[in-house]
Amino acid sequence: MIKLIYDGKNSAIAVAVEKSNEILQNPTFYEKVSSLPQMSNTILTSREIADILRRNNQKIYIGSFWNPFSKATIIEKPCLFKVNTYKMSSITAFVVNSLINEAILAVATKCDGLYFEEKDYEEVDFSNVFPWRIGEIAEILTRKNRALTFQSNI
């Protein structure tokens, strides 16, 4: 399974990477991906995508930088992307969404079988675009896990 690696000093990124790795190791994540409807920018079925991601043993390295004039993330090499801490959300679930999304983009650059079309989408289509949709699943699971942890502590 995909593993994210961060050895920087930003604690918010470290927490989000830890949560992302928990999601990427969770069979429920792949079940949820498998159950998605056909995504609008790939010929792969959701089940095929889930199987490819589950079998992939890629390590993705994450760095960070600060620049108010840059994008939120930058893929520097196929297995390295950097997070712009200036544009990073303070909500862990949003960061997990971004990290999983970028990790899948990074994996797709090295995996011929993980095909999707990159193009601009209307807002109506955006909700069903690969890999953004998968990032949303990770965000939702992060929020649910936090809620369950909170309830069990009461």
Rank of each mutant, 00 (worst) to 15 (best):
Y86Q: 06
T28K: 13
N56G: 05
N56A: 12
F81I: 01
A12D: 13
R143S: 06
T109E: 14
F150V: 02
S89G: 06
E18H: 14
K32Q: 12
A16P: 03
T45Q: 07
V15A: 13
S46K: 02
E123Q: 13
N84A: 03
A16Y: 00
K110A: 15
Q151G: 06
I5C: 11
P131D: 08
A147I: 09
N57H: 11
S46G: 05
N26E: 09
V129P: 02
Q38F: 06
P68C: 03
D7K: 15
L53E: 01
E48Q: 14
N101T: 15
L53A: 04
C79Q: 11
T149N: 12
G135A: 09
K19M: 09
V15W: 02
K59I: 12
P131H: 07
W66A: 07
S152C: 05
R55K: 15
L4Q: 03
V15I: 15
Y115M: 13
T45M: 08
A16L: 04
S70F: 04
K87P: 01
V83I: 11
A14F: 05
T142F: 02
F130C: 04
C111E: 15
D120N: 13
F69Y: 09
N153D: 09
N21F: 04
K82N: 09
V124N: 12
R133V: 09
T42W: 00
M88G: 01
F81Q: 00
F94C: 11
N84F: 01
E122I: 13
G63P: 01
A108P: 03
Q38E: 11
D7H: 14
K59G: 08
D125R: 12
M88N: 02
L36A: 06
I43M: 11
L105T: 03
S40P: 00
T28E: 14
S11A: 12
S64R: 06
S90D: 12
E117H: 09
I62G: 02
I49H: 01
V107S: 06
Y115T: 14
A16F: 01
S89W: 05
Q58W: 00
A103F: 00
I43K: 14
Q58G: 05
R47Y: 04
D125V: 08
S89T: 06
V33M: 05
S20K: 01
I74A: 03
